[in-house]
Simulated scan of single mutants.
Amino acid sequence: MALYPSHDSSAVKRTLTYGSFAASALLSGVERLRGMDAVWVGNSPITVAAPMWWIRHRYRIPVLLHVLDLWPDSVAASGFVGDGRARAVEGVLGSWCGHMYRSASRIAHISPGVGELLRSRGVPADKLTYIPLWAEEQFTRAQVENLRAELGLAENHLVLVYAGTLGRTQGLESLVDACAKVDDPNFRCLVAGSGVADAELRRRAQEVGAGNVRFLGRVPKDRMPALMATGDIHYVSLRPSPMAAYTMPSKVQAILAAGRAMLVAADGDVAAVARESGAGIPVGAAHAAGVQDGIRRATALGRDNLRVLGERGRDYYHRTFSAETGVARVESALAEIARPEVAHVSG
């Protein structure tokens, strides 16, 4: 499909990206769906509504709408819209989403919190189904060498890894501040990724004396399995916000699938997974004192016990988040909404 690609901070360019996607899908994509029994649609971006509405109302094809991002919440949190126009834009987007929800035959949500929020916005409970996302499992199946030797890490070093966006939402200054106060000489923290807070976090690490924190920059995707294997425990954090309670970072599934323990500095659905899986040390929303306590608990457990937590997490992943489980849920939902004559034949 033809697309104007932009992922920078310009609201105009981002709108062009979303709009060109919808126009291209309408012009070159919807005809290929004619005659389908049911269609699975991801709602990000929400301009996908244009081809969705066409196939729903023109061809009478039932739609399973998978809510991958919450709109207008994600736009409001991104800061793309200035305060003067925010309320008007949120109103338009909220109405747009409401029409999408009404048009869909079934709506899938990726975390329990999102399901609760959708119900509060008027989506009938019997229209909702829980279908969480899964990890890129090809990166977690193969046995890989870790990066300890390459990074000069000793066998007795307990390593905490953060890999992802270095942005405002993650509240990573709490991690840096906490690491500066850890007095265990064998503790090391690796921070991999890039983002708007990168330079600020590096300065902060110098200012507070966090000599046990090492910034790796962006790590190529094909080296992520080795980085995952390097960490004894992986860090997941979200700064307190209205969205944090129902945000589920994709790294959660990746960490669980890789069989690694988690230190979770967040509330809501992420903290619930940390507790239910048995793989996590939940410390509440990101703040230095809580993170420091979580690191202390991790170092007290030691590397061998953290591996046990990771194995529990891998088992939980296969029961709850695996691609096999997720695809089965998608297929079941599609079968339930398929045109009656199709559902009758398949049954």
Rank of each mutant, 00 (worst) to 15 (best):
E150A: 14
E150I: 02
E150N: 06
L151G: 06
G152M: 11
A154H: 10
E155C: 08
N156H: 13
H157P: 03
H157E: 13
H157A: 14
L158R: 06
L160Y: 08
V161L: 09
V161E: 02
Y162V: 00
A163M: 09
A163L: 11
G164M: 00
L166T: 06
G167D: 01
G167A: 05
G167Y: 01
R168V: 14
R168P: 01
R168E: 10
Q170L: 05
Q170A: 04
G171A: 12
G171W: 00
G171I: 04
G171L: 05
L172T: 04
E173L: 12
E173Q: 15
E173Y: 08
S174N: 13
S174F: 00
L175H: 00
V176R: 00
V176A: 04
V176I: 15
V176K: 01
D177A: 15
D177C: 08
A178N: 06
A178P: 03
A178D: 08
C179D: 09
C179Q: 11
C179E: 07
C179W: 00
A180I: 09
A180S: 13
K181C: 13
V182K: 00
V182A: 08
V182C: 12
D183W: 13
D183A: 15
D183C: 09
D184R: 13
D184T: 13
D184H: 11
P185N: 12
P185T: 12
N186S: 15
F187L: 14
R188F: 09
C189M: 06
C189P: 06
C189D: 04
L190G: 00
L190F: 07
V191C: 06
V191K: 00
A192C: 12
A192D: 05
A197L: 09
A197K: 03
D198M: 11
A199Y: 05
A199M: 10
L201D: 04
L201Y: 05
L201H: 06
L201Q: 03
L201C: 10
R202M: 05
R204H: 14
R204W: 05
A205C: 10
A205P: 01
E207H: 07
G209R: 10
G209K: 06
G211V: 07
G211H: 12
G211M: 04
G211L: 11
N212R: 10
R214N: 07
R214G: 04
R214C: 10
F215A: 07
F215D: 03
G217Q: 08
G217W: 05
V219Q: 04
K221R: 15
K221W: 13
K221E: 15
D222C: 14
D222Y: 14
D222M: 14
R223F: 13
P225A: 15
A226L: 14
